[in-house]
Design a protein around this nucleic acid. Sequence first.
DNA 1: CTACCGATCGCCT
DNA 2: GGCGATCGGTAGC
Length: 204
Amino acid sequence: MTPSSRPLGPPLRAGFFARPAADVAASLIGCDLRVNGIGGIIVETEAYDRSDPASHSVNGPTRRNASMFGPPGHAYVYRSYGIHWCLNLVCEPGSAVLIRALEPRHGLETMAARRGLSDPRRLCAGPGRLCQALAVSLAMDGLALDAPPFALAAPETAPAWITDRRIGISRAVETPWRFLLAGSRALSRPASRHATPGRSLTPP
DNA sequence: CTACCGATCGCCT
DNA sequence: GGCGATCGGTAGC
């Protein structure tokens, strides 16, 4: 069975997020994320926290990042480069997990229509691309993740993951807080030379 | 496959 | 005024 076709476990509860963002980011690999029924399997995440020079929260609350200082288990949505939306899942205060890529599983035709005539292999391969495919926007900033439009469920068994350096940042570039589903073909970028195997949270 | 560029705006120095 | 937690297009190897 491929990692993306394994049966789903229970919905994620708010307590799942009240942990350090790096732990949550690893635990999210293999989870099923849908927005209004459209989505797929999380295959790439990044963690950002309160004392992290690369994080939006490093200088404290602003209007943009207010959700990062709100309750765990809610969304933080921000505009990237003035054009794209990016979706984060809030963890401990001032920390969050950026969802960077999904393996599309639900609503492929809807995603393709929202994304235009682009390469079907890149429907959700990048934080901006997946927000376009799932129609995530600022209207969802601050919303709870355990109620519509969101649906988030754990896999029955946690898959193996890989840790790597984060992408597209200039500070704290060596912090290994990018998490990848091993072997996934739906990543925004392949693993770098700095990638190293992670440990399963639920070994057999 | 990698490299560069422009678009475009909130937040920072 | 500068710089991004990015993307799609184009150019080149």
